[in-house]
Design a protein around this nucleic acid. Structure first.
Lengths: 414, 414
DNA sequence: CACATTATTTTGAGTTTTAAGGAGAGATCG
DNA sequence: CGATCTCTCCTTAAAACTCAAAATAATGTG
C-alpha cells in the first residue's frame, strides 16, 4: 500500500539543504561578504562554507564581485548572490487592470506593464489576457538575462479568497468571480514545468510579505498588516517571515469584525463591520455628512471625490477633511487595539489608502490603541506606514518567490 | 569576540535528533507498534529504526511490552513509550488556591493536591507555599517511580500576562501582582539543575495546549481556544501544535475587543469589551435583569448565584436561565465570527464556564458565526466543548512538558 | 627578503543514514 | 514431523556530510 508520505525524515541531504539555505539567507542579508565571514556569522566550519560556496557558484547562484584587501593577511574574496541567477514574474489582477512585472534575483524590476481592461461577465478573455502577459513576462526575463538564468517562480495576487489546498480562487467579490481553479489554469497555460513554481495568494497576504522582505517591516518578526482598498479592508499576519494562513489560507479577513451592533449596514448584510468604518467609503461618508463648508464641496457635488483629494485638503488644513481622517483614525485604532491584543505583534503596517492618510490618523490610532489594548502589548507595538504603494502586491509576489528560493535553493540545483 | 550564536546549523547530530523526535512522536501516537511498522509509518530505513530504538531503550524511554504473533512470519515485538521514563510536575496558581499534580510520561496523574489560601497583600508566603508544594511533588515523583526515572519538567500556569522573554509575570489582575520574576524564583527554589525544565505560561495558553494534546482538539491543527473564568475571558491559538505567542507571549488576549461602543463599562475602563458580554458576570447580569420570575430568584436575592445553578435551571427549562445563556451565546458568536475570520481555524474549543453552558449557547453561536463570518471560513470551523474542566490548566502543563520531551528527547539522553 | 597574518583549500576522521544480506522465530504445508 | 515460507530484526559495508587540522595562498611588515 504505497501512499504519499508527508513526513520528511532527516538524512544527510537534509543537512546539506538546511546549510545551503542558511548560506543563501545570510548572503541575501549581508552581501557582499567573504567566506570566512560567512563561517563566523553562521557558525559553520570554514571548510563547509567553502564547499557550499563552490556548489552555489557552480550553479551560478553566487559570484565573486571583488577583493577586500584592507588590513593584513590574505585578502578576502567578496561574495554576493548573483542578480542574474534567475528571474521571477509577479502579477496582480485588479478589478480593472492587470499588472505584471519581471524582476531579477536582486528584486530589480527588469520589465513591467499595466493594462486596463473592462470587467466582463465572462472570465475567459481576462484569464487569457493574464496568461498571455505572464508568458510575455517570462519571455522578457529569458531575453534580458544571460544564458544561465532560470525562472524562479510566478506569483499572482488576487483580490479574493484563495484556497491554498486546492489553488482555487473561491470568491472575489469585486470581480464577481467564484470557484476559479486559478493554479490549474496557470499551469495549463504556462506549461507543466512551472507547476511547482506557481504562487497564488490573496493580495493582502502578498503585500504583507513584500513589506516584511523589502519594505517597512524588515527586521520585525510578528507583523500585522492592514490595508484598505476601495470598499474593503484586507489584512495579513507574518510570523517570523512565514505568512499566517490558517486552515485554508483565509486568515487575515479582518474587514467584517463587528465593531458596532448599531453601525452602518455593510455589503455583507451585517451592521457595523469594521470595513464600513475604515474604508475609502467611510472617508467619503464622513466628508459628505460633514454639513460644513469645505474645499471639497465641489468634488462632493460632482461626485468626483478621490482619496488623494481628501489627503490634500487635510494637508491644507481643511477641517472637514481633517475631521474625516480623525474619525476613521479612531475607528481604526479601536480595531487595531483588538488585533494587537489578539496577535501581540511587534509592528503594525498600514498600507493602501490607510498609508495615504496616515499622518492625520496616527494620533487617533495611537490614542485608541493605548486606551484599549493592554499596556504591555501596546508598548511592544510600533506602527509604521507601508513602503510600497500601488506596487505592494507585485513586490510581495517577488518576495514570495525570492523567499522560496532562499529557503529551498536545492530545488534549483538540479 | 565570542558571542552567543542563535543560529542552529545542520550536522549529523541534528539528523539524529530529528529522527529521534520523529520516533518519539510516532510512538506517542501509535503505540504499541513494532519496529517494522514504525519504519513504514515514518519512512525511515528499518536499520535506522532499530538503531534509534536501541538508543531509546537503553535510556529507558522505550520498552517492549509484548509480541504480536498474529499472522505469518516472524512475530513483531511491540514497543511503547515507557510511562516510567520520567515524570513531570504541573501546577496552577489561582486566585484562592494552588493545585499541583505529578504525572508520569503517560500523563497518568501519580499524585495531586489542591490547597486553598487566603490572598494576602504579600506575595512572599504564597510563593513559598507554591515552591514547597512543587518540591514535594518532585519528591513524590521520584518516590513513586523506579530508579531510572527522571524529572522531565515543571510547568506553572498563571492567571496573568507572562513575558516569555524574561520569564516574568508582568501583571495578574486577580492576584494583584506585578512584575514577579517567577522563572528565577522557581529555579532559585528548586535548584539550578531544573532551570531548563521550567515552563511558565498564561493559564489559557496552557489549557489550550492540553486540549490539543489530550483533549477535544486532538488531530486539529489550527485551534482557537476560548475560556471564560470568573470576570475574565482568556484565549489562545495553537498552530500545528505550537502555541501562537506573538512577540512577548501575550497573544490571545481577546477579552477586551471592543464589541459595542455603547456597551457595559468594563473593569479596564472602556465600554463594551467582549468580556463584559460573555463572562460569568454577564450571565449573572442577564439573570438579574430578567424581571421575570425564575427558579433562581432566591439565589438572586441571597446573592448566592453560581454558574452551575444557572446551568441546572436552564436544563429544567427555566426561561430566565435559558434566555441568559442565549444572549451570551449571541455575543459569543459575534466575537467568535470575528476571530474565525482572523485566524481561519479548523476548530474552536470552548472551555471554562463556556463549556458548562455550551448546550444552551451553541445554536446562537452557530447562527452568529454563519451570519457574520465568511461562508468558507465558517464552514471550515468546527466548535467543540473542552474535555478538561477544572484541571485544564494542569493538564496543559503536562502537555507542554510532554511535548518538550517528544520534540527534544536528546536533551534527556545525556 | 624572511616572517607574520589572514583567507581559502585539501585531507582525513567521525557520524549517520541507507541498501543489501543474513539470522531468528513462528506459521503453513506436504 | 520436517521443510519451506514469511516477516522481523540485526549486521555490515558504502555513501554523504560536517568538522578539525594541516597545507597552501596572498598580502603586509620589518
Amino acid at each position: 500500500m504505497p501512499h504519499t508520505r508527508p513526513i520528511r525524515t532527516a538524512d544527510q541531504a537534509l543537512v546539506r539543504e538546511i546549510n545551503l539555505s542558511l548560506m543563501m539567507k545570510h548572503l541575501h542579508e549581508h552581501a557582499p561578504v567573504s567566506r570566512a565571514n560567512l563561517a563566523e556569522i553562521i557558525g559553520l566550519n570554514k571548510s563547509t562554507v567553502s564547499s557550499l560556496v563552490t556548489e552555489l557558484t557552480n550553479h551560478n547562484f553566487v559570484s565573486e564581485i571583488g577583493i577586500d584587501n584592507t588590513g593584513i593577511g590574505r585578502p578576502s574574496r567578496l561574495l554576493t548572490l548573483n542578480p542574474t541567477a534567475g528571474f521571477m514574474v509577479s502579477a496582480q489582477l485588479n478589478v480593472d487592470s492587470i499588472s505584471v512585472i519581471c524582476a531579477n534575483f536582486a528584486a530589480d524590476v527588469l520589465w513591467s506593464t499595466r493594462e486596463k481592461f473592462k470587467l466582463q461577465s465572462d472570465q475567459q478573455p481576462v484569464l487569457e489576457h493574464l496568461t498571455s502577459l505572464l508568458r510575455q513576462a517570462i519571455q522578457m526575463g529569458q531575453t534580458l538575462q544571460p544564458d544561465k538564468t532560470r525562472l524562479f517562480g510566478v506569483a499572482l495576487g488576487l483580490p479574493g479568497l484563495v484556497d491554498q489546498s486546492t489553488g482555487t480562487l473561491l470568491f472575489a467579490p469585486n470581480l464577481g468571480w467564484r470557484d476559479v481553479s486559478i493554479c490549474r489554469i496557470l499551469t495549463d497555460a504556462l506549461g507543466q514545468n512551472v507547476a511547482d513554481l506557481v504562487f497564488v495568494e490573496n493580495e493582502a497576504n502578498m503585500a504583507a510579505l513584500g513589506e516584511y522582505f523589502f519594505g517597512a517591516a524588515r527586521g520585525f518578526h510578528q507583523v500585522l498588516y492592514l490595508s484598505a482598498i476601495g470598499e474593503g479592508l484586507g489584512g495579513a499576519f507574518v510570523n517570523h517571515g512565514q505568512l499566517f494562513r490558517g486552515k485554508s489560507g483565509f486568515a487575515g479577513e479582518f474587514g467584517h469584525m463587528t465593531m458596532d451592533p448599531d453601525g452602518e449596514l455593510c455589503r455583507c448584510g451585517n451592521r457595523g463591520c469594521w470595513e464600513t468604518q475604515v474604508s475609502q467609503t467611510a472617508i467619503f461618508r464622513h466628508v459628505r455628512q460633514a454639513g460644513q463648508s469645505s474645499v471639497l464641496d465641489e468634488a462632493i457635488q460632482t461626485d468626483t471625490l478621490t482619496i488623494p483629494m481628501v489627503v490634500d485638503a487635510a494637508a491644507q488644513g481643511d477641517p472637514v477633511a481633517l475631521h474625516a481622517w480623525e474619525q476613521v483614525g479612531h475607528k481604526l485604532g479601536i480595531g487595531i487595539a483588538a488585533l494587537v491584543n489578539a496577535y501581540n505583534p511587534d509592528l503594525v503596517v498600514l498600507g493602501g489608502i490607510l498609508s495615504l492618510g496616515s499622518q492625520f490618523m496616527l494620533p487617533a490610532i495611537d490614542a485608541e490603541l493605548h486606551q484599549r489594548a493592554l499596556r504591555w502589548t501596546a508598548d511592544a507595538t510600533e506602527i509604521r506606514i507601508a513602503k510600497h504603494g500601488a506596487d505592494a502586491c507585485e513586490m510581495g509576489g517577488v518576495a514570495m518567490v525570492t523567499q522560496s528560493v532562499l529557503l529551498h535553493p536545492e530545488r534549483f540545483l538540479g
